[in-house]
């Protein structure tokens, strides 16, 4: 049971990551593999702020997220938007985003080295809380609480505000929003900002459990994609479920098979879903294929 709780906690962070990815994907319709790396850079910045300037965790996390948003916006306007305008297929953009991922990953390695950086909400070792016989550490509590809060805010924003409705509309039928005279480019940029912000928060949360390494950029975007695909691309609720499922499956895998098989479990889950139910749990949009 403890394993499942641990899985749910880390899964909620995966879910947040997947939600951000799903949100961006449903408006731009290409896979941006650098998504996870930009998020991890946000976590690195938070780490640096905490260690060098003794900022508290939440403030550092927000500051790091802002830096990530900046990088995300730059990459969108300098690389992705021009490529879309030149008529690049989603596959070409995917490969280019991989190039960006490699560059960012290695720059991070140069700045922060390849060692794993540990992150915690406080300097002292705090005792865990007891919840119905299960232990939950303060770090875990932070992850779960912030992830839940962000998802709630996002859900309210999308469902109850006018702008949120426009964002949902673009993800639903972009052609039609153009016909209605909406400023689609502006809204897409806003989505990029929101998605990147969420991803950086998520990466900083996950860092509480697994630390920060340059290679996490790749692993996190893969987890985000897995969560988003399992839940059904374009569905926020789906990404939530997908993330939780992934977190629990991974932790069960670690317990029964050992930590080394973690990635294998994740990818096998992905493969199973792509083969058996490619539209995900809450089918909204089919995975847009290039062929």
């Amino acid at each position: 049971m403890q394993i499942i709780l641990n899985g749910l906690i880390v899964g909620s962070a995966y879910a947040l990551m997947g939600i951000g990815f799903s949100l961006i994907y449903s408006t731009v319709r290409y896979f941006n593999l650098a998504y996870g790396m930009v998020a991890v850079i946000g976590a690195y910045v938070a780490y640096t702020l905490m260690n060098s300037w003794s900022l508290n965790y939440v403030i550092a996390m927000l500051a790091g997220a802002l830096v990530a948003v900046l990088i995300g916006m730059l990459s969108s306007s300098i690389l992705f938007k021009p490529m879309v305008r030149r008529g690049g297929s989603s596959l070409v953009i995917l490969v280019a985003s991989f190039g960006l991922l490699i560059i960012l990953q290695n720059i991070s390695a140069l700045i922060w080295q390849n060692t794993t950086r540990a992150l915690s909400i406080s300097d002292r070792i705090l005792p865990g809380y007891n919840l119905f016989g299960l232990i939950i550490t303060p770090n875990q509590l932070m992850i779960g609480a912030v992830a839940l809060l962000m998802m709630l805010i996002l859900e309210l924003f999308l469902k109850k505000t006018r702008y949120g409705m426009a964002i949902r509309a673009i993800g639903d039928n972009q052609e039609l929003t153009k016909v209605l005279g909406l400023k689609t480019e502006q809204i897409i940029l806003a989505v990029y900002v929101i998605g990147t912000f969420i991803s950086a928060i998520s990466a900083t949360l996950i860092a509480l459990e697994i630390g920060i390494r340059p290679t996490h950029g790749v692993t996190l975007v893969i987890k985000a994609i897995i969560a988003a695909i399992i839940g059904g691309l374009g569905s926020i609720r789906g990404a939530l479920l997908g993330g939780l499922l992934l977190g629990v499956a991974e932790n069960l895998g670690i317990y029964f098979l050992g930590g080394q098989w973690q990635d294998t479990v994740a990818f096998t889950l992905l493969a199973v879903f792509l083969l058996v139910r490619p539209e995900g749990l809450f089918a909204k949009k089919r995975l847009v294929s290039v062929n």
Partner: peptide, 16 residues
Amino acid sequence: FSNMSIEENLLMGAFH
């Protein structure tokens, strides 16, 4: 907009 309600579809029409 298939994933939105009828009312939301109409509201989107008056978005500007």
